[in-house]
Design a protein around this nucleic acid. Sequence first.
DNA 1: CTTTACATTGACGTTGCGTTAAGGTGTATA
DNA 2: TATACACCTTAACGCAACGTCAATGTAAAG
Lengths: 254, 254
Amino acid sequence: MEYVVRKLAQMAGVSSRTLRYYDEIGLLKPARINTSGYRIYGETEVDRLQQILFYRELGVSLDSIRDIVTSPSFDGAQALREHHEKLLEKREQLDRLISNVERTIEVSEGRFQMMDKEKFEGFKQKLVDDNEAKYGKEVREKYGEETVNKSNQKVRGMSQEQHDEVTKLATAVTETLQAAFETGDPAGELAQKAADLHRQWLCYYWDSYSKEAHAGLSQMYVDDPRLTAHYDEKQPGTAAFLRDAVHIYTGSVK
Amino acid sequence: MEYVVRKLAQMAGVSSRTLRYYDEIGLLKPARINTSGYRIYGETEVDRLQQILFYRELGVSLDSIRDIVTSPSFDGAQALREHHEKLLEKREQLDRLISNVERTIEVSEGRFQMMDKEKFEGFKQKLVDDNEAKYGKEVREKYGEETVNKSNQKVRGMSQEQHDEVTKLATAVTETLQAAFETGDPAGELAQKAADLHRQWLCYYWDSYSKEAHAGLSQMYVDDPRLTAHYDEKQPGTAAFLRDAVHIYTGSVK
DNA sequence: CTTTACATTGACGTTGCGTTAAGGTGTATA
DNA sequence: TATACACCTTAACGCAACGTCAATGTAAAG
């Protein structure tokens, strides 16, 4: 079936202007131009537009979307599975927002108190995943470094300021961990500082921190060979050392 | 407790630039400026920022938000209840999106077919509520016509094109209904045309149409005195006439 | 005192359209 | 066939909500 601009726009819930703009930037070209000069869209374009709208819904910039969907190696079915996963995450975040407003309503009715920090639960989105070593690499090789960085940034609504902070903390963790490793003492001052920095770094990822979760994650670094490899890259034994330091920091071992 | 720009920005998950911009446009003024010229925010500003972020999350323009939250009659607790309601609606829409992507995945795996129109389920958001006569009037008087129109438009992600279409259909319903009323025949051609136009109008509100729902809604027009008053404004008996016409149209009466 | 991090104001730039203007095309009606 | 209305095209300006950069002042730690 074929559509002119208005028909497709109506069906998709976008404006005609949007479709013309997408044509202009090379994001969604019509199947053909008829003898009157009208844009004519077909089945392929419908599916492309659906993909675009999913990416857009997830906050990806149009530039990035264009690079992704026009890539020869673009796999529509795989993309759909990723959209699914991301939409589920988005729903989790929305649930947190809903919990927040419910709690705030109770506060306004005087039932209990709420810390300032809690008032913003759900607005801060989880930032770039810790486990890039697990699957980020494959995506990067497929779509290019720049595209993924932009995409991650937008998907997560992360500002440059926040990104800088995370990067700085990650660097601080790594450096302090190395220095602490040389002391050989996971209970020492440096190791405990590394654990604390690690906690601060995690707080960009987790809306709520718990010692159990922190300890559990550090155990994961040892249990998952790929994550172990990530931490042991410069100095074998680092993952285990961090795990020990965190366990002590969180009081998980006596 | 007091915060400088960076602290508040971090806590709320926004950028320092955002807070300065909000100060500049009069949306969120700091509690005071200290002797160094630094912005200092307090408890009141924290609560104001939370409200702002809820409105922003719901797509309301900053201009509108400023008009709302700076109004002397702004009621924070009431606003929170409205946010709650709107966030629940937003989650419903997200659920529809998730269903859409799940179905599309099944299509991509060849399990069954999907109509073009179905591929955009969840992207089109429900438009302005039918029941403005119920509670829209109070809000309008409170905050002003322009603010509410802008707010509704943004909250619902409605484009001008879509808005025009809805308005045109609503006008067509009203005019056709009046002409049909004069025939006195709810089964007549004009009345059935009015019922059909009413259905088309409803399709901007409902993602899925059913005759039962259509018939049920038209019954509501008669049962709810305020909705009856809305339809009977120009011609008493119009609500009942429309109910009859719709019942015949949907085959709810023989 | 020096260094680093963060504050300020000012100003330019970006993204993704919305809107308007001018002129062409399609369709229904008189 | 002519007319009216709806919708097509291109071109271009405008805008919201910041992001980014520059220059300069302030706070805190070593």
